[in-house]
């Protein structure tokens, strides 16, 4: 932790803040989402839960709790104050289909998503890829390089994940600040070029 990180008391955003942008950090189980967010966040990453059903909509349900399927799903997030008026939030959440409700909340207003991928477990990324595509979130792939990983050819990844030719693939070490920041920058550049094209 260096001096840039805000101390416990100073965790509020300045009154001048006007824009709260949101980027998603998604990926399958244990792919490095929490690590990535923790590496870049200026506050200790926070964790919160979304309840998946209308929790206890009426009192009778409280007695019949057994029959109810209420799931909670955790998402973690971090924060980066980028200038006087702009703050960026990074939200991480798992990619399982059953968390669709959380995805609706998370994706609303999101600029884009960084999809973390472990090349040794490509299949596990399919569900999350389906979700980002279903919600129409523009994304870049960050290949998280775990120790002992064999590098995979980019073309192989592209094919396996069925990526568009323009979708960026960046390698990154989620434990490393520079490397993680670089992945985020690549995503943002890609989002820019997409937005420009759409405006043409």
């Amino acid at each position: 932790m260096d001096s840039r990180h805000v101390s416990g008391d100073a965790r509020h955003l300045h009154d001048k803040v006007q824009i709260a942008a949101k980027i998603l950090v998604v990926g399958h189980f244990a792919v490095g989402k929490t690590t990535f967010i923790g590496t870049l966040s200026e506050i200790p990453p926070l964790r919160t839960e979304e309840t998946m059903t209308q929790a206890a909509a009426d009192v009778d349900d409280l007695k019949g709790v057994k029959g109810k399927t209420t799931t909670t799903v955790a998402m973690d997030f971090g924060r980066l104050t980028l200038n006087d008026r702009l703050v960026l939030y990074l939200f991480g959440t798992p990619g399982q289909q059953r968390f669709v409700q959380v995805w609706e909340d998370m994706t609303r207003g999101a600029l884009g998503a960084l999809v973390l991928v472990d090349p040794q477990r490509l299949k596990e990324s399919f569900a999350v890829m389906d979700l980002v595509e279903k919600y129409g979130i523009p994304y870049a792939i960050a290949v998280n390089h775990f120790d002992g990983n064999q590098a995979r050819a980019e073309s192989e990844l592209r094919e396996a994940l069925d990526l568009l030719p323009e979708t960026p693939i960046i390698t990154c070490d989620a434990r490393d600040e520079k490397s993680s920041a670089k992945a985020l920058v690549s995503l943002v550049r890609y989002l820019q070029s997409r937005t420009r094209q759409e405006q043409r």
């Binding site: 840039r4 942008a21 980066l80 200038n83 702009l86 960026l88 520079k178 985020l184 920058v185 820019q192």
Partner: peptide
């Protein structure tokens, strides 16, 4: 917004 995010990230990291 994207330009400000980009500039902010680059200034910071």
């Amino acid at each position: 917004v994207l330009q400000e995010v980009l500039d902010g990230l680059q200034a910071r990291f």
